[in-house]
Design a binder for these strands. Structure first.
Lengths: 174, 174
DNA sequence: CATAAACAATCAGCATACTGACGATGTGGA
DNA sequence: TCCACATCGTCAGTATGCTGATTGTTTATG
């Protein structure tokens, strides 16, 4: 029921038909969700290529980044900053804690909460990874330049904002 | 709730600095890979919302789609069509086979290969899912309209093509 | 005050995704 | 022919991500 893009003319693309001749079903490459999954795979691969020696994944790096920028958040607050659901966040933090990169402490005023801080080792690792991680993100969109890149990132941001409420890991709107 | 045919352009993004004051590190929302991960999460959630009753994930639906469009491909060929690595594909196919949605048969001319076909149940399920799946993909990009949507999908496609070689699941270029 | 409701973190279980290794099978060259 | 090599599918192990249930704590309510 969502709308058909009838507003804009559909002039350009078809080097290949977007639909299967027999069934009329869209080819995978014409499905937005399929392309998004592929680009996510590609980014993870680039991140691993740039940061492989550190044995840190993109999500671990995101969590450590927020833990540094906003020290002392509890796990629930962290889920809203990183866009990771609470079960996954607990898993990732347990691994980072075991490696001595973060520490978790129950608060006294509310013993349900666990505040998260980077350890000195975590701070060091984060600093060493800054440049390779930045390269990984840059390479992910390197094939677009100038206005095309800006348009893509703008659309991407708008879709993420618009869809933020779906799923189990909505982010705090900031 | 679905669409706003009147385009309803998002108000301009609030102006927040892209970098942390102390460290100069990029905020998560300014990292392309972070936004891509979030949009992937959102699409998976929308797919589950539309297709939840079928207990089929986006990747399972992609694999079944290709199995219908190109019956008899072996698993290695399927990995190249779907952009899934061979270990993951074997896992997914085992689950689909257990549910009676696909069948796998060793070929006689090369006993290493397993050809994949949809079963009649698989064909039926795929047909029933066509409309909800299409809606899930449409809703993923519903916040963009007209030229903005075209620009986003064009950039997305170009990035996927450009990065196709990275990772363990490159697709056959078609 | 006592109890219900809400909340934080965890757990079990499943699915996608990757790595590295393995056994079975095919292929090409000495 | 025989052997080295490549290929196909699988397996074990690990990480993200989700669902639903559980435990412990806090807050609200009667």
């Amino acid at each position: 029921m969502t709308q058909e893009p009838t507003a804009a003319p559909q002039p350009p693309m078809p080097v290949r038909p977007d639909r299967h001749e027999q069934t009329g079903v869209a080819r995978l490459e014409a499905r937005p969700g399929f392309l998004i999954r592929r680009l996510h795979q590609i980014h993870v691969a680039l991140f691993a290529e740039e940061c492989g020696g550190f044995n840190i994944t993109p999500v671990q790096y995101s969590i450590m980044s927020v833990a540094q920028m906003r020290p002392g958040l509890d796990q629930s607050e962290l889920t809203q900053e990183v866009g990771v659901d609470r079960a996954t966040l607990a898993n990732v933090l347990a691994r980072l804690e075991k490696r001595g990169l973060v520490r978790r402490e129950r608060t006294v005023h509310d013993r349900r909460l666990k505040q998260v801080h980077l350890t000195p080792d975590g701070v060091t690792l984060l600093a060493e990874m800054a440049e390779p991680a930045r390269r990984a993100h840059a390479r992910t969109i390197a094939a677009l330049t100038g206005a095309d890149r800006e348009a893509f990132l703008d659309g991407l941001t708008r879709l993420v904002v618009a869809g933020n409420g779906y799923g189990r890991a909505p982010m705090r709107i900031g």
